[in-house]
Write a protein that binds this DNA or RNA. Structure first.
Lengths: 129, 129
DNA sequence: GAATTATTCAACCAAACGGTTGAGTTTTGT
DNA sequence: ACAAAACTCAACCGTTTGGTTGAATAATTC
């Protein structure tokens, strides 16, 4: 992976086709807030929108962007649309970044320990509902 | 982390201030190609630009964006500007995503194994120069 | 010191982004 | 059947993005 000499010969070498969409989706604080709130479990569009300082239509568009990136999915049940986090989308970006860190991060072990600690603490804290 | 009830009460709750910049920087394929090419080691701006299908000025702007996000740094030595990967910037985004995955990913172990494999293979393959 | 090399700066342009409002479109409730 | 609820769609608007070109800057070479 990342074969040495010409990994940038063509711009998009072996890039997963939707990393653009995924990272772009993550680049907005509103969208990250939505994702964070979905960590708690499924949510209706309206419930997601309620705390956010913008119109329902704006939130709807944000959700479309998250859906197109494969980060959330919407299940329509009656007139209500329920949103849920889609783990695999995140995984793609995560793996890409990891492939990076393997080379570049010096304090990889420290990071690993930090992550382990966080993970354990979270699992103790509350269930994902 | 991600305290249950109102993690989205305000949009930017405890967000690292530059996640916007980091993810936005990663959202462009040209910029990811530049980062990938920097995995090999330091590079002059011109050398980074050479394989890319755009003007030098465009690449210069991409590098500014990467620098503002803290993902690369430029060391000017004479008239030549040498770019290097900045690991800590990536780590911030990485940790954010990890905090996410801890809750959401079902196949966490599989992912971990995949990562371990990739890491081992890469370390065997070539040195980062 | 004049020309060349390496890179940024500034102005511009089309397209995309993040928001708005107002009008659909389905369900649900009475 | 009617009105309200829960959305999405469409059109618009100001700002940012990703590229261009041409000029500016700075260090090297002749």
């Amino acid at each position: 992976m990342w074969a040495g000499r010409d990994c940038s010969g063509v711009v998009d070498t072996q890039d997963a086709p939707d990393l653009d969409l995924i990272f772009a989706a993550l680049a907005d604080p509103t969208r990250r807030a939505i994702l964070a709130s979905l960590l708690d479990g499924e949510r209706k569009v309206g419930d997601l929108a309620e705390p956010l300082p913008m119109s329902l239509a704006a939130v709807s568009k944000h959700l479309q962007i998250l859906a197109r990136a494969g980060l959330v999915s919407q299940l329509r049940d009656g007139r209500v649309r329920t949103c849920r986090l889609e783990p695999d989308g995140l995984a793609a970006a995560f793996v890409w970044m990891q492939g990076f860190g393997a080379f570049a991060m010096e304090d990889y072990d420290a990071l690993e320990r930090y992550i382990e600690a966080t993970l354990a603490e979270d699992e103790a804290g509350e269930e994902p509902r």
